[in-house]
């Protein structure tokens, strides 16, 4: 060490370290609660659209899991799906009517998604900058702690912000670096405090995501998708699990 050890005031930890941590934890909790409150309730879709996507989903399920059907059942369902997919029975709106809808920024559904994205982004940035400003303004100009590990001199300007002592050991840092350590390190504490709910929400989201979304702007027209699906079903090669099941069973347990 090229400077003698500094003696730090005992009161620093009660009045600087712990308050900063506490404030950051509380603000994090507040933020997550506010995001929860600001989440828009999912709007009900018109029933025809739901029916359309559900039917497509059903056809997909048939295509992927067709091996549990016997050949006879398979043929029956295949014919039904091809016929229905090619007719316009399940279309939400007739294809020739809906030809002129292009992506417009004023479309209400689009706007809503953009708004919620902007909100969550704002909620991420505003509290962080506020706390950083608070820490910088309130606890400026003194060393608050000694880090247990040494950093290179390159970090000096950032971590010893506001202390104009050129030869001070980099391990002595000011409040802003404690803010940064907290910023990255509080993640496990948040997840311990509100871990369970988050996990449940994730699972819920996953279940919702399985529904195919058809209303996005870049999506191809619904009749194209339906025709595609019909073609996919047409070229299916069917192989039932029940074929030769007796032989396989006997072979396995002999």
């Amino acid at each position: 060490m090229f400077t003698p050890d500094l003696l730090l005031d005992l009161q620093l930890k009660y009045w600087v370290l712990l308050p900063i941590s506490l404030a950051m934890v509380l603000v994090g909790l507040l933020r997550s609660n506010i995001t929860y409150l600001l989440q828009p309730n999912p709007k009900l879709q018109p029933y025809k659209q739901v029916r359309e996507s559900q039917f497509l989903f059903k056809a997909k399920q048939f295509r992927e899991n067709n091996d549990i059907l016997t050949t006879e059942e398979f043929e029956m369902r295949k014919n039904y799906y091809i016929k229905t997919l090619k007719s316009d029975e399940f279309y939400a709106s007739k294809p020739n009517v809906a030809k002129t809808d292009e992506f417009s920024p004023l479309d209400p559904t689009q706007n809503e998604a953009l708004m919620s994205m902007a909100k969550s982004n704002l909620l991420n940035y505003i509290p962080q900058t506020l706390i950083m400003g608070w820490v910088n303004y309130f606890f400026a100009g003194f060393v608050i702690m000694k880090l247990p590990f040494a950093l290179t001199d390159g970090f000096k300007a950032m971590l010893q912000n506001g202390i104009d002592t050129p030869n001070l050991n980099v391990r002595y840092v000011s409040s802003i670096s404690w803010y940064f350590v907290n910023l990255f390190g509080l993640k496990p504490i948040y997840s311990l405090i509100m871990g369970n709910d988050e996990a449940e929400e994730l699972i819920k989201q996953q279940n919702q995501n399985q529904m195919p979304q058809l209303s996005g702007p870049g999506q191809p027209k619904i009749d194209k998708i339906f025709n595609n699906e019909a073609e996919n079903i047409q070229i299916l090669t069917h192989e039932s699990t029940f074929d030769k099941i007796i032989e396989r069973f006997i072979e396995k347990y002999q």
């Binding site: 730090l8 930890k13 247990p148 390190g185």
Partner: peptide, 20 residues
């Protein structure tokens, strides 16, 4: 990813212990 939490607790407790 988990090292950040470790570093935070390490710094905090180290500072508490050392200044005492």
């Amino acid at each position: 990813n988990n090292i950040s939490g470790y570093i935070m607790m390490w710094c905090l407790i180290y500072a508490l212990v050392k200044t005492n």
